[in-house]
């Protein structure tokens, strides 16, 4: 599929076809279009600036292979940089050598934590694990019901008990995992703002009591410029181990993936691609790069 960016770059380079080598002026002009494409894809403004700086340094003076037109050459460099930044191999959710493995799902309100918790439980069960879900969102109306309904569909038990704190619920989850011989505990936590000191403190307290093997930040693919601030703030206070990007079945370009990688270095481990419980997939850096560029 030929997209807007490729077309624009082709126009840009039409005048300078077959010049053989990318000059600074050529590259600068081409990168103006790339910049707009990245901003359109919601890559963070500062991240775009740094990213393009690196691309420019790499591109200027480079020989254009005979098989490539200049626009193809620039796109290739941009794509390569993007993929490199996004991690070049498929990331896994790691299991503790000494079970049970404790996995926290954390993030902003409405990002998709509860759904992703159930999806992950399902995925792990299919891999032969014995997961247990902990309903630790005691705030949102019917959050516990929601997790129970989902867990029922995949026949995974849910630990919940009225009037317990989230810390106590995490403890109960751990105890139940022993009792029920479960080897993975997935804790669905309440949505919270990164600037909510009390609720961020609550997650710290949970993790202090029942330490995470994996703490996954769940991020909506539609997120705009704020993604960077959110990811940095969560990472500052919590031992995040990775990111789950949700709602990629939409048509958002998902530039937040790039921004978060750039500022936190966290790997994107899984992506949500639908509302059904089987809609969870490993993250594919290559596909993400094309998507962000709109190709």
């Amino acid at each position: 599929m030929f997209d807007a960016l490729t077309e624009k770059l082709q126009q840009t380079f039409k005048r300078m076809r077959n010049k053989g080598r990318l000059t600074e002026a050529d590259v600068k002009e081409a990168l103006r279009e790339v910049r707009l494409a990245l901003l359109e894809a919601d890559v963070n403004f500062k991240v775009v600036r740094e990213f393009l700086g690196r691309v420019e340094a790499r591109a200027v003076g480079q020989d254009v292979l005979e098989s490539l037109t200049p626009d193809q050459a620039v796109i290739r460099i941009v794509r390569d940089e993007l993929i490199q930044l996004m991690g070049s191999h498929v990331e896994r959710v790691h299991m503790a050598s000494n079970p049970p493995t404790v996995i926290y799902m954390v993030g902003l309100q409405g990002a998709g934590k509860t759904t992703a918790s159930a999806k992950l439980a399902r995925m792990l069960r299919h891999q032969g694990r014995q997961p247990l879900l902990v309903a630790a969102d005691i705030y949102r109306p019917a959050a516990i019901d929601q997790l129970k309904v989902l867990a029922d569909k995949i026949q995974v038990p849910v630990v919940t008990e009225p009037s317990k704190t989230p810390v106590e619920l995490a403890e109960l989850g751990k105890a139940a995992s022993r009792r029920m011989a479960k080897d993975v505990i997935i804790i669905d936590t309440a949505g919270r703002l990164h600037v909510d000191d009390d609720l961020m403190g609550e997650l710290e307290a949970m993790n202090a009591r029942i330490p995470a093997n994996e703490m996954l930040l769940v991020v909506d693919a539609m997120t705009g410029q704020d993604a960077v601030r959110v990811a940095e703030a969560f990472k500052e206070r919590l031992p995040l181990t990775g990111v789950v990007m949700t709602k990629l079945d939409g048509d958002a370009r998902g530039g937040a993936a790039l921004s978060i990688r750039e500022v936190t270095q966290l790997p994107i481990k899984l992506v949500g691609s639908g509302e059904k419980l089987e809609d969870l997939e490993p993250f594919n850096p290559d596909r993400m790069a094309s998507r962000i560029l709109g190709m």
Binding site: L108, G110, D220, M222, G224, D226, V230, D251, R253, A256
Partner: peptide, 11 residues
């Protein structure tokens, strides 16, 4: 519309 939404909000 969620305030954290980026340009996809337009679509």
């Amino acid at each position: 519309i969620d305030a954290t939404t980026g340009q996809n909000g337009l679509e």
